[in-house]
Design a protein around this nucleic acid. Sequence first.
DNA 1: CATGAATGAGAATTCATTCAT
DNA 2: TATGAATGAATTCTCATTCAT
Lengths: 191, 191, 191, 191
Amino acid sequence: MSKEEKIILAAIDVFRDKGVEKTKVSDIVKSAGIAQGTFYLYFPSKLSVMPAIATVMVEKIMSEVKNRFQDSTPLVSQIEQIVDAVFYLTKEYRDVFALIYAGIAQTEHLKEWETIYAPFYEWMSNFLKNAQNVGNIRDSLNTERSTKLIIGLIESAAEQIYLYDDFDEENATLQKQELLDFLHHALGLRI
Amino acid sequence: MSKEEKIILAAIDVFRDKGVEKTKVSDIVKSAGIAQGTFYLYFPSKLSVMPAIATVMVEKIMSEVKNRFQDSTPLVSQIEQIVDAVFYLTKEYRDVFALIYAGIAQTEHLKEWETIYAPFYEWMSNFLKNAQNVGNIRDSLNTERSTKLIIGLIESAAEQIYLYDDFDEENATLQKQELLDFLHHALGLRI
Amino acid sequence: MSKEEKIILAAIDVFRDKGVEKTKVSDIVKSAGIAQGTFYLYFPSKLSVMPAIATVMVEKIMSEVKNRFQDSTPLVSQIEQIVDAVFYLTKEYRDVFALIYAGIAQTEHLKEWETIYAPFYEWMSNFLKNAQNVGNIRDSLNTERSTKLIIGLIESAAEQIYLYDDFDEENATLQKQELLDFLHHALGLRI
Amino acid sequence: MSKEEKIILAAIDVFRDKGVEKTKVSDIVKSAGIAQGTFYLYFPSKLSVMPAIATVMVEKIMSEVKNRFQDSTPLVSQIEQIVDAVFYLTKEYRDVFALIYAGIAQTEHLKEWETIYAPFYEWMSNFLKNAQNVGNIRDSLNTERSTKLIIGLIESAAEQIYLYDDFDEENATLQKQELLDFLHHALGLRI
DNA sequence: CATGAATGAGAATTCATTCAT
DNA sequence: TATGAATGAATTCTCATTCAT
């Protein structure tokens, strides 16, 4: 594993453990098992690791989505699979996402975020296009534009449940149901 | 204006200008025109101003929404008015929202955010309930649960446009149209 | 004594003891008996204390010169008194002068040096003018311009003896004699 | 060009550009086009390049002096030629001399400076001896001792003009005239 | 209540130097 | 000889917080 990778993975660990604010570069290097100075060979500052972390997280999202997604399943189930993937990751890595948002917002990396998220947008966009082509979602939907709406909707729902609210399994299930229903209507599902 | 208010307004200014991380208490007091020590008579720390700022911002949201909202207008227009309010505020105060998000995320105040946001949730919830009562939106919608979905959806759409994308008026209009359409279907509008 | 004075005097002490390069701000504050941060309230950096030190040293020169100088003595003796003053100070504070030159040269304070030295220049200039008025030095001498030449000459002679050469009392006396002789001719002394 | 020469020339460049204090070894090697580690094959530390630089500069002085000096010219002109050489070099390389001075003073190399300067002292000493032998300067002058006085005088005059004062062509000419006059009397020129 | 000079713990960052290749 | 990635000790400087006035 390259030193750069070591730093990124160590940073994720330490950030999760102590929060961004309280994490010192010295904590990261200790956890990565490298020298203090080596950190600065790869990243100019603590926060500049954020985009790299974000990239890793988006990779996780993609692999989770692809893992759960089944081609042969009806559309409703497929949507649920996507929602499940996002919910699962938000739950599992809620702290990482929180810190990415915070870290990204704090710096000038906002625009970068789009690029990092691109693979997920693209995948979702294709998914919608295909569904529309076979007539399973309403024709009036502009798949390109809706992609971001849908991802934003699912994620903000997940954040509500796992970040802001006190977690409660039953509430989570109901909220997910409502979201699926909401999406069902928004997409004009015909199946 | 009380010293406390001076501090809050000065903090908003300076945070917008320099970001949370790089803002020093000394910057805030300089801008507020008070002494260094006076700050600590009102707030125990730099980040503890965040909830006060958030409260001011939610007041702005509420006044903007109420200002634009017209009882006598058809539901579709009313929804557009709400969207316009949120879009306008995100555009105008995008940086303040980002910093609130960052500031809140940095501390343990995440849960507090819910409380601060409560007035907006409540207002929206009532709006949906009324519309459902007069039969203008689908009965299957759980207004309580959908409130957060809708607000999350509108806000994430606004963020996409004003935070992440390079702003482009035409794109903004089209994206808003798609959002209204999306909401239209999701709510099952009958008018 | 003000904190600023404390810093200056402590800096002189520590610089003399350890040299500029090896002196840390922490050494200065320790010696001054103040807090680390207090230093930066008065000086932005280690080297920026240099001009203040130089000012103190020029004050020392002036008081030494004035102390040794006797109005009633013949001109040759008066010149010797001046030379003695400069030699004595260069000997006593050779390390301080060395560090001032080094410190001044290292920074952008070169021009400031002129201002700091002004009192000595002025005094010497007056001395020459008076001597010329009473006809004791050649009329062709431009007292204003020669001032800097003479001071430069005396100081570089002193530096040669006390800074560069291995010190040797006999050599010092002879070198001083040669300097006085040199000056005697250069000024065209008539007494 | 050997790597050692590359290092010396690069060091002069970078030192002139950034000053000794702020120059890193990495800057020098970058400018020299060699690897970081290679530096240490030739010099044990950053400041240890200083004497090598000084040697190069003294070579420049000697070649400049010898270049301008004409055997067949009258003594007054010869003195002017020497002054011109020193003035020209101080003007052209004022920063290098300043940094040598600073660099030398910072270390324990002060005494070394004498050795490096020896060729110039020797040349000047011979010049004076010859002039005295043919009876062109006063017999009372101890040529050996005066050598350092004269060089110190000329150099401090040059520094006054080119380092400390804001440069002004007319002032420079007058100051040089005064210096030549001063020397004329000091040496007791008979021609 | 208000002040602001003083504090000093603490973190970021640098950079000369090494050493395996 | 030459390289340059890696090191980590060393120092600067910051800035939240205090407290005597």
